[in-house]
């Protein structure tokens, strides 16, 4: 895209984020060597999977100039219905079907968001607030509230899929979950889509100036439909992976997850006004959040402090961004 001069590199958000990550890792590792253990590192990677897939979807929505807080609800709905259905038919087939089912449910729900937004020109925050609550309520009121613990075998097998496994001297086992590959593949796919396809550039265009996008010939409505359905589909995928990895289908799960995911995407450099951001930045933002959450204990900070620390990080990061953009503005404007 741009010929990245060395100068440009230092200006890029992603670069500083990466530096921050490295510095933090080194710090935590210095305080507690256990940080570098395979067990810890693998577990950190595992934690990024579900949040990361969510974040990829939210990233798309934010770039298009909107926002979405319904995705955890959609994820839970999708995986729960899928699991319930599969259990009822005593499913033992390929893992693909559960994925497809959950993804489709998510996509359909996302489509509803998009239709409501386009047809009635409603604010995305309010619409996704409404659909998210409605779906959560519907699920728990009419489908069930029981935690299902006998997951279909294919899902259990999936949770055992590792791309690296080793038994240590003391008999414990460390394994690197294969689900991480799914995150990687999705990330690469979306990165390519956003950078190399007209569709992706169109999403940036809408976020930049919707009217101009229309004039240039983009079908704004169709692009929106895509973005929200795709996010819904990703939510479905994230949901089924989540439920598989913890081997439980709990309809009360993932409550409040939207806040952390949005924080991750914003930390990653996407602007709330739309048109800016990158997949790399988003993943780095997720990594940062996961790192902080996972490392507090290692450093001796009780996990109680998680929220406080994340909140402070978010405030500092957004404060810095706001301060920096004001400095570069016409100097002197009060």
């Amino acid at each position: 895209m741009n010929t990245l001069s060395k100068n440009r590199l230092f200006q890029r958000n992603e670069f500083w984020l990466l530096c921050l990550l490295i510095v933090l890792s080194l710090t935590v590792g210095a305080v507690n060597g256990a940080f570098w253990s395979a067990n810890n590192l693998f577990s950190l990677f595992k934690s990024t999977i579900v949040t990361g897939i969510f974040a990829l979807g939210v990233f798309l929505v934010i770039v298009s100039g909107g926002i979405d807080i319904s995705f955890p609800a959609f994820a839970v709905f999708s995986f729960y219905i899928t699991v319930k259905f599969l259990l009822s038919i005593k499913y033992t087939g390929t893992i693909l079907l559960p994925f497809l089912m959950s993804m489709t449910f998510g996509a359909c729900l996302g489509l509803v968001n998009a239709l409501l937004l386009s047809s009635f020109q409603l604010a995305p925050l309010i619409v996704t607030l409404g659909t998210g609550s409605a779906v959560t309520g519907f699920l728990r009121a009419f489908v069930g509230t029981a935690t299902l613990s006998n997951l279909p075998q294919p899902l259990i097998d999936f949770s055992r899929w590792n791309i690296y496994k080793k038994t240590l001297a003391d008999g414990s086992i460390v394994s690197f979950s294969g689900a991480f590959l799914i995150l990687l593949v999705l990330a690469i796919l979306i990165h390519v889509m956003m950078k190399r396809t007209t569709l992706g550039r169109g999403i940036y265009a809408i976020g930049g100036d919707e009217v101009a996008a229309k004039r240039v010939g983009f079908n704004v409505k169709r692009l929106r439909l895509f973005v929200y359905s795709f996010t819904g589909a990703l939510a479905g995928i994230a949901g089924i992976i989540h439920c598989s990895l913890i081997r439980l289908a709990n309809p009360r799960d993932l409550e409040g997850a939207e806040m952390e995911v949005i924080a991750a995407v914003v930390l990653g450099g996407a602007s709330l006004t739309g048109g800016k951001g990158s997949v790399a930045g988003t993943l780095l933002g997720v990594a940062l959040i996961v790192l902080i959450k996972g490392s507090l204990i290692l450093v001796g900070v009780p996990s109680d402090w998680q929220k406080v620390v994340i909140g402070l990080v978010l405030i500092t990061a957004t404060g810095l961004t706001a301060w920096r953009s004001r400095r570069s503005d016409e100097g002197g404007r009060a």
Binding site: N2, G202, A205, G208, D209, A212, G217, G274, G275, K276
Partner: peptide
């Protein structure tokens, strides 16, 4: 009717791309 968040090059080429 330009896209502030995109480069000059992309702004110039986008309508051709879409059309």
């Amino acid at each position: 009717s330009l896209f502030p968040n995109l480069t000059v090059a992309e702004n110039l080429a986008l309508s051709d791309q879409v059309e």
